[in-house]
């Protein structure tokens, strides 16, 4: 899989921005190639050797990262044009795919830049509040087991519960922009996750009300990009379709009951 003729040097073209208000600019950094690098280890190298290809000492590149195992969601950025986690982006694979030793790194474009590759994804967490993304338990008292469920139901919910709020689906979505109100695949899928739990479903109507508002499910343009880029293979388009169906039922019920 990995070819033998590897380059001596890698070049990173990085889109930088000093703070939320300033203009972005590009800088290039060289580093020696080693086998088994991922983009994080390249960024770590650049942090320790913050000198551009032109020989200029600059401030180290800023980015967000934490677990480096593609489970925390922190280190998402746009690598060679594609939104993904930089920890699981392996340099050898990128070289095989592109045949090019120049690798570009950019911040995601759908979120405000904090600095360099670090963006502000608080909108995603706020959207989880909008859809009441929790199971409403009475408290931490000893009240016995939760509801039983079949292995099939567990399997279905588990697939949804792996969403790490990374933002890839929103970056790839043509309907989700930096300044509109669309809630996006992530929050819709999470709403479905909680609606699928016996106790969680007690808030189903409130979740569906939230998803009926401006920026709700009906703003989805069905481009289906979200599901293609999700690093956890979450069935996002299924979630959107299922929630759409729940909404139809919800509105018919509301129409007849007036509630």
């Amino acid at each position: 899989m990995i070819k033998s003729n590897k380059p001596k040097t890698l070049t990173f073209k990085i889109k930088r921005q000093d703070d939320p208000k300033s203009e972005p600019y590009w800088q290039a950094f060289d580093m020696p190639y080693r086998p088994s690098l991922n983009i994080i280890s390249c960024l770590q190298y650049i942090a320790g050797h913050a000198t551009t290809t032109g020989g200029k000492d600059v401030a180290p590149v800023v980015w967000e990262c934490s677990c480096l195992e593609e489970v925390c969601g922190s280190c998402t950025m746009v690598i060679n044009g594609r939104a993904r986690q930089s920890c699981s982006a392996l340099v050898d694979e990128i070289l095989d795919e592109t045949g090019d030793t120049i690798i570009t790194l950019e911040p995601m474009s759908k979120f405000p830049v904090v600095r360099d590759l670090w963006v502000d994804r608080s909108r995603m967490f706020e959207n989880l509040k909008k859809v009441k993304g929790w199971v409403p338990i009475d408290g931490t008292h000893k009240l016995g087991e939760g509801p039983q469920e079949s292995p099939e139901q567990q399997d279905m919910r588990y697939a949804l519960s792996r969403c790490m709020t990374c933002g890839c689906c929103l970056e790839a979505c043509p309907q989700f922009t930096i300044d509109n109100e669309f809630i996006g695949a992530q929050a819709i899928s999470q709403a479905r996750y909680f609606n699928e739990h016996e106790t969680g479903a007690t808030l189903k109507d409130e979740r569906l009300d939230a998803l009926s508002e401006v920026g709700g499910v009906s703003d989805c343009g069905n481009a289906q990009n979200c599901v293609k880029v999700c690093p956890k293979d979450i069935p996002l388009t299924e979630s959107i379709a299922a929630t759409g169906r729940q909404l139809t039922v919800h509105h018919i019920k509301k129409f007849f009951t007036g509630k």
Partner: peptide, 17 residues
């Protein structure tokens, strides 16, 4: 039990335990 009530998708046996 508390995690179970919060909806953690614990793996299940055939019977749902």
């Amino acid at each position: 039990d508390l995690f179970d009530r919060m909806g953690v998708p614990f793996n299940r046996t055939k019977e749902g335990q």
